[in-house]
Design a protein around this nucleic acid. Structure first.
Lengths: 342, 342
DNA sequence: AATAAAAGTGGAACCGGTTCCATTATGTTT
DNA sequence: AAACATAATGGAACCGGTTCCACTTTTATT
């Protein structure tokens, strides 16, 4: 291990002042004779010089780092979002600091502290729903905060990028109603999540439009992670009047749900139609292939990064941007026409 | 947006010197009277002071950031690896800078430059296989480099964490042989990848052990990403003597392979047995459930992080650590006994 | 009570860049 | 050739922390 050369080493070796080297490093910041520039470049190459980001960031804050704070990267939805965000950021020369909350307030708060200390220029996050004061503080500091996939209603002036959850919930439910189903269940995210709430709102719209009766027993909240989705499914199956169709919120849940159904010997779609919010290639390979609500992850990522870098050094207050992109309902065999009982 | 308070603002407000505030910030770095400490803490709270990481890192390098350089986070294997690495790093108070190469040398080289400029203390990477000089330079600089999942044979003194690919390839192949298969194919990663090479070595060991003839036509290299796996499968089906069993390298490939098989009307396992290197819950939900080689991603992550933080400020040369963890073969219905032709 | 040891504090240099401003070299205009 | 604009360069302050060392105050020792 050798000590790293500094800008002064380069200056000395090239026989110029550090100011000149700095100008070579930042083209456009001042005039440098072509011959000098070339010589300095040469010296930098032979010395293996690389300017230290930490030092550069000292003077003026870094518009060079973004924080990406997700619930959980093992969830394929978030994983793909992370992938797209990283690509999009890299294409703009921005680095991404990845953090996870595990849906835990306390962890979220710790992560946010480190992001504050790093003075990141922007944060893209799936908020847990708490830590309101910290989010506010971040905005006061001039950090561009963007909520993606969900939001916090109490924080009115934060940029938000989501899919149109109301419409998605509505169209999925409407599809099931159109297939003759009258007992349609929904396994949704936690009650606090805006995502879940909006989808349920759409679900109710569709029921009303189809003239179907609402039954709150058919709407179940379950944690996004773990096997809670399976328990919700079991509860639904044990109802006096079990549903003939169900809309499920995400991958982890549908995995648990399908496992439970297989175990209980319930066949899809003959006995139960299934729609899931998801966008993995494997949904098509299952037996039966799953009807899905496809979320345009690339659009979510692109808009998020754009907003997170939009106002370097402070946003204009009072005008939050809300982007809602449309999800796409893709019909496959897991939805079937309701059979009239024999 | 308000200007952020600095350590001098805190010192002034608390009526002490910056040295004292710094000592409060870094417990153990020097004596501070309890009363003073409390007062300073109070001032920091009311001022909303947060020390800037960039400034702290200037003095002595940062053992506080890790670079995680993966091919691609949309691949579930890497996504889960990222998730575990982030969790493991966070539990040690370390932050993770996430980057992707898309398996592209050029991009990899750019990402590495950024990591050099940030003076990260360690890098966990799935190398593309090129940029040898940059990897060497990083080690010279004292950066802890850890290759995970694959390695570069030409770089002998880099720490490596992988699964035991030879043994995995061998046991998967042996299982198929034990079921009576004599024409066993392997769809592997690119020929350059150590992962693919090792698995093929194991595959050959198993063939030899079972007294089966090697046929190079049955071994196909395909890119890890995209639909190349499907093309390889098609080619295998079109052989004069097509295989009756196949081992597939990863998720993206098996997705393409199964799609192709469904399209071609080949049934699994009746006409073709399938084993895949994968570890997603959904492999169990498919029809038929897939036999898999499960990779212990949490162990890979834990060892990688440990090694990447092992030698803060320079590794002892000449003693690279190589960790090989065992993968687990999980038998499910996608492997069947070879039927003798009628 | 005299003296030594320890605790608490502050001044100032330092990390490695950027940038303002003064100074010198070069080139243009008449 | 004189006068002036412009290009090229260097000196030094600055960003916001850390740390060495000197100095003062408190506590312990005999």
């Amino acid at each position: 291990m050798q000590k790293q050369p500094t800008i002064r080493d380069v200056a000395a070796a090239a026989g110029v002042s550090v100011a000149v080297v700095s100008r070579v490093l930042n083209p456009g910041s001042g005039p440098v004779a072509a011959a000098t520039r070339d010589r300095v470049h040469e010296v930098m190459a032979t010395l293996g010089y690389h300017p230290r980001t930490a030092a550069r960031e000292l003077k003026h804050g870094p518009p060079t780092t973004l924080g990406l704070l997700l619930a959980d990267v093992s969830n394929p939805f978030f994983a793909r979002l992370a992938d797209q965000v990283v690509q999009e950021a890299h294409s703009r020369g921005i680095q991404v600091l990845l953090m996870t909350t595990q849906e835990d307030d306390q962890l979220e708060s710790e992560r946010l502290s480190t992001l504050i200390e790093r003075r990141v220029s922007g944060i893209i996050a799936t908020p847990t729903g708490n830590n309101l004061d910290i989010w506010k503080r971040l905005q006061d500091m001039g950090t561009d905060v963007v909520f993606v996939d969900r939001s916090i209603p109490a924080l009115a002036d934060v940029d938000v990028v989501t899919i149109n959850n109301v419409e998605s919930g509505r169209s999925a439910t409407a599809l099931l109603a159109a297939h003759g189903h009258r007992r349609i269940a929904m396994i949704s995210g936690p009650a606090e999540s805006t995502t879940g709430r909006d989808r349920i709102a759409g679900y109710r719209q569709a029921l009303d439009a189809a003239g179907l009766e609402r039954d709150d027993l058919l709407v179940r909240s379950a944690a996004f992670r773990g096997t809670a989705g399976g328990d919700a499914m079991s509860a639904l199956l044990n109802l006096d009047e079990p549903p003939t169709a169900v809309v499920v919120a995400n991958t982890a849940q549908v995995t648990a749900v399908l496992g439970r159904l297989a175990h209980a010997g319930v066949s899809v779609p003959a006995e139960l139609s299934v729609i899931v919010f998801e966008d993995s290639p494997w949904t098509e390979l299952m037996t039966p292939p799953l009807t899905i609500v496809r979320q345009p992850i690339d659009l979510l990522a692109r808009h998020s990064v754009r907003l997170a870098l939009a106002n370097p050094g402070g946003r204009t207050p009072g005008k939050p941007t809300v982007v809602r992109v449309d999800a796409e309902l893709i019909e496959r065999a897991s939805v079937g026409r309701l059979k009239v009982r024999a």
